[in-house]
């Protein structure tokens, strides 16, 4: 909890089977076991752009650029961090295996990919 600075945004959305369920009803047991992976948004790129995680892990995007960015699911916007201004971050937890392609809704050339798979 030390990391929860005031400038951070918390989204807490859980994807896959739990998509659209409010945070309060999502599986907290798995959240406790999942790792958090940081993706920096710097110089108009996601770094790392490719990430492999386990189901139940969380990805945290941190924007260090001077302009706002987003991390938004590529195909139909199934998930979205919302606008992240300079210094803000947003997290999402991925429960289902599969590949998630995403981009920045403000700068569509910025692209990233998350592979969710069991080890």
């Amino acid at each position: 909890m030390r990391l929860m600075a005031t400038s951070r945004r918390e989204f807490g959305a859980r994807l896959g089977a739990l998509l659209l369920l409010p945070l309060a009803t999502s599986g907290s047991a798995r959240a406790a076991g999942g790792r958090t992976h940081k993706v920096e948004i710097r110089n108009f790129a996601f770094s790392p752009a490719e990430l492999t995680i386990a189901p139940g892990d969380t990805v945290e995007w941190v924007n260090v650029d001077i302009v706002p960015h987003t991390a938004t699911e590529q195909h139909d916007g199934a998930w979205d961090t919302g606008e992240l201004k300079k210094g803000q971050s947003g997290k999402l937890t991925f429960d289902q295996t599969g590949t998630q392609a995403y981009y920045c809704a403000f700068h569509p050339n910025m692209k990233g990919r998350i592979q969710v798979r069991t080890a």
Partner: peptide, 11 residues
Amino acid sequence: AETMIRDHTAV
């Protein structure tokens, strides 16, 4: 246009 407003305002 929305991105221009957002980014140039931020800068």
